[in-house]
Design a protein around this nucleic acid. Structure first.
Lengths: 345, 345
DNA sequence: CAATTTTTGATGCACGTACATCAAAAAGAT
DNA sequence: ATCTTTTTGATGTACGTGCATCAAAAATTG
């Protein structure tokens, strides 16, 4: 039978009140007594019944998500997942709210973080923008004892407790590896070039993906020439136009890697005027559009991060922190999913 | 504020006892009263506080896992994940136990299921063997109100409540697609053959993977010739020998797909004597061995199902059934993971 | 209408913990 | 030894639900 506080009290020869003081780190317990109680806790293998504890303190954990108001399919998806989680949250004594901030902007994000430092929610998840001011604001939250999780986009060098997102460097390398393999047998025969499309080089994820992509191509497939990065600002119309121009300019493009959003423009351009040499296209994020494109062969591989998993994971991690519980590492690791036509969910 | 039973009682103009009777489907409530209470429950959006409920009835859910005593890395992994889940289970009012049965055998599995039908645990998860007797035994459990989840290997046609595993047909197709793409540019030039290695054609997963593999190759890459299936009984030594023989017999093998276990033998054979024409190898299950083989280039792609996810998912589904709660479908969908050197976890 | 059966109410304990209060004991200071 | 401060005990209430019991009310039957 699982030991309870009563068992601890009896075994340690103290009262329930003292056990309670030790468990909840309240003051007014002599050091020797505290140690005695703690050793009994260890010996009996007592674990606090979180359900009963939460019931007793009728505490609800207010968790706040800060998400960019970006119109991209992926961010809309994150948004949706947060809403869904919020609707489910009541059952689990969690109160999830969200704040939308302008995408890629530092000042509004920092202001929001500062405000939250005052409001003191039980946890904060944010899609980070990589800037020193943001880092400082996050560190201040953590210093105040508020757990912080970065979502989708990390904030290296900060004190954030956890990152719920993929390794973008690995994503770029994965794209490079697959592209190289798909094109390989011919790479030796003739000159082939690879086009790369990004949203903006100011965004950390895009930079990292590109870096991984370039470095692996350089080391493993040196005969493939990577063209200068095209920046489409994650905007379908712009992406579409840039690509059409490219296809007219060059006929030797064998592979294409799109690290950012704006996939609708990409797909449209590919369907309208695809270079004959183009034999492999890799893009990010599984949406209804990219899904269709995979199925009809317009895109060959989609690299994906599971937005639902990321949001649920962020919540689990924040809750575990609030309850002072351990997390299952394997469960919180966000995978880089490789989707092809045949393994679509 | 979340409504409680008290709010329901007050709003419906009945006592707590009556609300309780309605909530727990106890008898002794007039139909009109029951309907009134139920409509109030809907109107106020009452949801039972499962934590409090479980606390009150101090019920622990005994869940039983039936797993084959197979020595394969994957089954050992499943075994380990069940143990780990069991050690964590105390916190969540679940009591997880497991029974090992001889792999691939029908009679012992059926006997175990029959015994469980008497013991009436709160839920059963099993690695199914595809036989009518097993199906009947499972159906009997379900008929008795005991939720059943199949794990890793499904039992089509049975009344099992859920399947926690991958789509093996899709797995085979995925392997075929990747193999085809990796070999493609040369497929037209010369005759190339594809070797396929399975544990046993008596096992459903292997049959399905192979079926998917063959059908996609036939339709999308008809120039690739698939050799007759080699059966290695999932035994490393046997796999090793079979492959060495094959490599001596044929020099034109360009691709290899291993649908089953015994990967250590596969890797050893590849390292000792790999045909020069062999340019793509795909196998199943990420273990320390296959991981190393991916990293050193012996294997190109590993298709994987996350054992930890499968076990945790099975538990969540069984618990949700016992608590009469809904599950998050997306969370319980077991993905077919594609791993290459670059996206290893 | 009375007798019987069914339905409902009132109430209280239980689960394991949090938290507060007040009194009592122990330790430390003088 | 006395006084002060710190530590500990005893106790009670609360959280939201399950479950049991007994009495009371209402509905049904004859």
């Amino acid at each position: 039978m699982k030991p309870t506080v009563h068992d601890i009290a009896a075994a340690a020869g103290v009262s329930l009140a003292t056990v309670d003081r030790v468990l909840n780190r309240r003051s007014g317990v002599r050091e020797v007594t505290r140690e005695r109680v703690e050793s009994v806790i260890r010996d009996l293998g007592y674990v606090r019944d979180v359900a009963a504890a939460n019931l007793a303190k009728r505490r609800v954990y207010p968790l706040v998500f800060i998400i960019p108001d970006s119109a991209s399919s992926f961010m809309r998806r994150i948004n949706r997942e947060v809403r869904e989680a919020a609707s489910r949250a009541a059952i689990e004594r969690t109160d999830i709210s969200w704040i939308e901030v302008p995408a890629f902007e530092v000042a509004p994000l920092v202001r929001t973080l500062q405000r939250l430092a005052e409001e003191r929610p039980a946890g904060v998840a944010l899609v980070a923008v990589d800037a020193p001011e943001v880092r400082d604001a996050v560190d201040k939250l953590v210093a105040r004892g508020i757990p912080v999780v970065t979502l989708v986009s990390d904030l290296p060098g900060s004190k954030r407790n956890h990152y719920a997102g993929i390794d973008n460097l690995a994503a770029g390398r994965t794209a490079a590896h697959l592209l190289g393999r798909f094109l390989q047998p011919r790479t030796l025969e003739e000159g082939q070039s690879i086009a790369v499309l990004a949203g903006s080089m100011l965004v950390r994820d895009h930079r990292e993906r590109l870096e991984g992509f370039r470095s692996l191509l350089a080391s493993d497939f040196p005969s493939l020439e990577v063209l200068p990065v095209l920046e489409g600002r994650d905007d379908p119309a712009q992406v579409h136009q840039i690509l059409l121009e490219l296809f007219q300019r060059r006929a030797d493009i064998a592979g294409l890697y799109s690290v950012g959003a704006g996939n609708r423009g990409l797909i449209r351009a590919l369907k309208e005027q695809r270079g004959a040499a183009l034999r492999a296209v890799i893009a990010h994020e599984l949406t209804e559009h990219t899904r269709d494109a995979l199925l009809d062969g317009t895109i060959d591989v989609i690299l994906n991060q599971d937005a639902g998993h990321e949001v649920r994971s962020a919540i689990r991690v924040l809750k575990a922190r609030a309850d002072e519980l351990a997390v299952i590492d394997a469960q919180e690791r966000i995978r880089l999913d490789i989707f092809i036509k045949e393994n679509l969910p």
